[in-house]
Simulated scan of single mutants.
Amino acid sequence: MISIKDVSKYYGNHKVLKNIHLEIPQSHIYALIGPSGAGKSTLIRSINALESIQEGEITIDGVQVHAKNTDINKLRSNVGFVFQSFNLYPHLTALQNVSIAPIQVKKENKEQAEEKAKALLTSLGLGAKISSFPGQLSGGQQQRVAIARALAMDPKVMLFDEPTSALDPEMIKEVLDAIRNLASTGMTMVVVTHEMGFAREICNEIVFMADGKIVEVAPPEKFFTNPDTERAKDFLAKVLNH
């Protein structure tokens, strides 16, 4: 579903992604983990062309993301992206935030788009909040609205860039539960996360990054119990024992 081949990215002379190669099959969930500055967010943002790349290629369902002739808006309508900060429109209700893109981008009928938005919000435990504005919602509720907004476009792929890092600890569970439920539907997902227990429980593969490179890719049980590299062992010793 997602193919990343020999991708490199530079900021000036600084190489932030170094010859990244990764194949993500359909209906699989991959977690990108690693220390700060490893390149995780840059990589996930480059998957839907929020970041440019200088070398290599990324394809989603056969479409070359960074090709000059790719319709980037059409591509992004197939790729849901959930940010650390919720990026909701403050002047729109939860319902309007979720239904606006299907109406404006996909030209869906307003009534149908709003029905679907209500169903999505209800499925994420927000049925009572459809008329609320973002300022009236907790961080966890806002992030679930953001997830509903991404799902409203019927994406083939969902990308999450540290979706819980801006949340208070008690809010984290409700967002992770929402992603868990999404996983059960067979959605292809890539998640940048610091939540190790969540990554271990939900993902098919752990992609460990450091210094702009993929250091190790392994199933969760293997990675968390017996990683191959010293770099991964060092990282796990720090994050699992703090």
Rank of each mutant, 00 (worst) to 15 (best):
S3F: 09
I4A: 05
D6T: 13
D6K: 11
S8L: 10
K9P: 09
Y11T: 11
G12Q: 05
H14F: 15
H14R: 12
V16Y: 04
I20P: 04
S27C: 12
Y30P: 00
G37W: 06
R45T: 09
I47H: 01
A49G: 08
Q54H: 12
G56N: 11
D61I: 04
G62Q: 08
V65Q: 02
H66C: 07
A67Q: 11
A67G: 12
A67R: 11
K68T: 13
N69T: 14
N69L: 11
T70C: 06
T70M: 06
D71E: 14
N78H: 15
V79R: 00
F83C: 12
F83A: 10
Q84H: 09
N87T: 09
L88M: 06
N97E: 10
V98L: 02
S99F: 03
K106E: 11
K106W: 07
N109S: 11
Q112I: 13
A119M: 07
L120K: 01
L121W: 00
S123N: 09
G125Y: 00
A128G: 09
I130S: 02
I130H: 00
S138P: 03
G140T: 01
G140Y: 00
G140V: 01
R149C: 08
A150L: 01
D154V: 03
L159E: 01
E162R: 04
A166K: 07
D168P: 04
P169I: 06
E170V: 09
K173N: 14
V175W: 03
V175A: 09
L176M: 13
I179Q: 02
N181Y: 01
N181K: 11
T185S: 08
M187T: 13
G197L: 10
I202M: 12
N204D: 15
I214D: 05
V215W: 04
E216V: 05
E216L: 05
P220F: 05
K222S: 14
N226V: 09
A232F: 03
D234H: 12
A237R: 11
H242Q: 13
